[in-house]
Each structure stands twice: as structure tokens, then as C-alpha cells.
């Protein structure tokens, strides 16, 4: 029996794809800040999430922050890369994802930090830049126990570097408001024209002209209803995206090749 079990175990270990340690499942609903280690306060988490998702909306670059208490025996670089690949951080088109990984220092173990950079951003954020961000922005703050400041400062620099490379406009709330305003303006103007025409029609004795105007009215009514429906559906889509803490729509299937840097303290 033992032999049999051993055989099974050997067979399983051979057949098992060479995937690494058990990384956390892709978050659902999608989130950019995944504080599994619990080192941020709820306010900090929300602030960072909003900041990162606004950045993802405006440039299409996705930066995700992940904190864990244990790297499951793999290096921080491997762990971060694996998260990037399996979660699909960044868009599939640009591979423009970044994973910021923090394993806080505990009594018995070193703290470890890693920045993994997707294929598409390797040019904008070379390994030596990532290393400098870790050494200059993150670790000094981490040493004094202020994880939020370190991560926040790192994200500021990463955003600056990443947006220089890829800046695909994803439609911002500002643009949205403009569209809504124009639609409202359009409706007001249409209604004004319509009521004027109606007034003119009553005074006009010509039947043929009246009929024509009725068709016109139907046409304009259709336009109004159409534009109302249109703006309505637009709002719906936007709202469902905004439902969870700031509008992050989900990871886009970006790929990683192992670029980035890590550090420990």
C-alpha cells in the first residue's frame, strides 16, 4: 500500500506542470489592492484602490498591489511574476501590467519587496529603475513600519514611468460628463424647436404642410427618444463599472516575462 502511494505521489509530481507555489486566487470582484497580509487600514486601501483604478482607466496600465505573509518557498521575483501571469495583470494588447508585492517583515523573517513588470513596460521601467524604486521609495518607509507610504510613493514613480510609455485613453468620468451635458443641451434645443413648430402648425391652414410637419415631429421625437435611450444605456454601463470602489473593470490578460527587481530589509 505504501509503495503504491509512493508511486502515485511520484507520478503526480512528474505529471504536475512546473507551476510555482500556490499563489492567491485572482480576486473577485476584481481589485487592484489585495492586502492579504492586512498591513493597510481600510481608508488607505480605498485611497490606493481609487488612485490605481483611475490610473488604469486613464492610461490602461494596470498596477496591482499585493501583500502576503508568506512567499511559499519561492523568491519574491518568482512569486510576483507568477501573480502577474496567472491573474493576467495589464491589457492583453500591451502587456502593460505591474505587480507590486510586499511581504512584511516579521520577528523571524526578513521583509521582502518585489516589482514585476509586464513585457510591454520593460522598456519604460528597466530592472535598475525598479531596483531603485524599491531601495529609495519603499524600503526606507518599510523599515519604520509605514507600509502605506512606501507603496504609495513607489506607485507614484511607477505611474510616471509607465504613462510615459503607454497612455491609452480609457474614457474618464470627465469626458462622460461632457457627453451627458451635450445630450441634455441637444434635447433642450430640440424640444424648443419642436414646440415652436407646433405653434406654427396650428396657425397654418395648409393641410399638406401640416401633415408634413407631423412626420417631422415623429422624426424629431424619435431622435429625442433615441438620444435619451442612448444616454441612459451609457450611464448604466458606467455605473456597473463604478460599483466597486472606484471603477476597476478587471484584469486584461497581460503577460509577464520575469522583468523587474526585488529587495529585502
Amino acid at each position: 500500500m505504501r509503495k503504491f502511494l509512493k508511486f502515485i505521489a511520484a507520478a503526480v509530481s512528474v505529471l504536475m506542470p512546473a507551476t510555482l507555489a500556490a499563489i492567491p486566487e485572482r480576486p473577485y470582484p476584481p481589485r487592484l489592492v489585495n492586502d492579504f497580509a492586512g498591513i493597510f487600514s481600510p481608508v488607505q486601501k480605498n485611497t490606493l484602490e481609487r488612485r490605481l483604478s483611475a490610473f488604469a482607466d486613464s492610461t490602461s496600465n494596470q498596477i496591482t498591489v499585493v501583500t502576503v505573509t508568506d512567499l511559499e518557498g519561492s523568491s519574491a521575483a518568482e512569486y510576483g511574476t507568477e501573480i502577474g501571469i496567472r491573474w493576467g495583470v495589464g491589457s492583453g494588447k500591451f502587456d502593460n501590467g505591474i505587480v507590486v508585492l510586499v511581504k512584511p517583515k516579521t520577528a523571524g523573517t526578513d521583509g521582502e519587496a518585489n516589482i514585476s513588470v509586464g513585457y510591454g513596460l520593460e522598456g519604460a521601467i528597466p530592472d535598475s529603475y525598479a531596483k531603485r524604486i524599491i531601495e529609495n521609495e519603499m524600503i526606507p518607509a518599510f523599515r519604520s513600519g509605514d507600509y502605506y507610504t512606501g507603496v504609495d510613493k513607489a506607485c507614484t514613480v511607477l505611474m510616471k514611468l509607465a504613462s510615459g510609455e503607454i497612455s491609452e485613453y480609457g474614457g474618464s468620468p470627465g469626458e462622460d460628463m461632457l457627453i451627458v451635458l451635450f445630450t441634455i443641451l441637444f434635447i433642450i434645443i430640440l424640444v424648443a424647436i419642436l414646440s415652436k413648430n407646433k405653434g406654427g402648425g396650428k396657425n397654418n391652414g395648409n393641410r399638406g404642410g401640416g401633415r408634413k410637419r407631423i412626420i417631422d415631429d415623429d422624426f424629431t421625437r424619435g431622435l429625442i427618444i433615441g438620444s435619451l435611450l442612448n444616454s441612459g444605456s451609457g450611464n448604466c454601463g458606467r455605473n456597473s463599472g463604478n460599483g466597486y470602489g472606484g471603477g476597476f473593470g478587471g484584469f486584461g490578460g497581460g503577460d509577464f516575462g520575469g522583468g523587474g527587481a526585488s529587495g529585502r530589509w
Partner: peptide, 27 residues
């Protein structure tokens, strides 16, 4: 030297990653 070290460390991780991806596609 520090920058070269960072590039080298990143390259080692790239090697590990691409080897794993190769093995997966070969499998």
C-alpha cells in the same frame, strides 16, 4: 555595478520564467 547587478538579477528571473513557459508549451 549596482545597476548591472539589478539587471542581472532581473535576467535570472526572466530566464526562469521563460524556461517555465517553454516547458509548459512543450508539455
Amino acid at each position: 555595478f549596482m545597476e548591472l547587478q539589478a539587471e542581472l538579477a532581473g535576467t535570472e528571473n526572466r530566464i526562469a520564467t521563460e524556461r517555465r513557459k517553454y516547458n509548459e508549451s512543450a508539455r
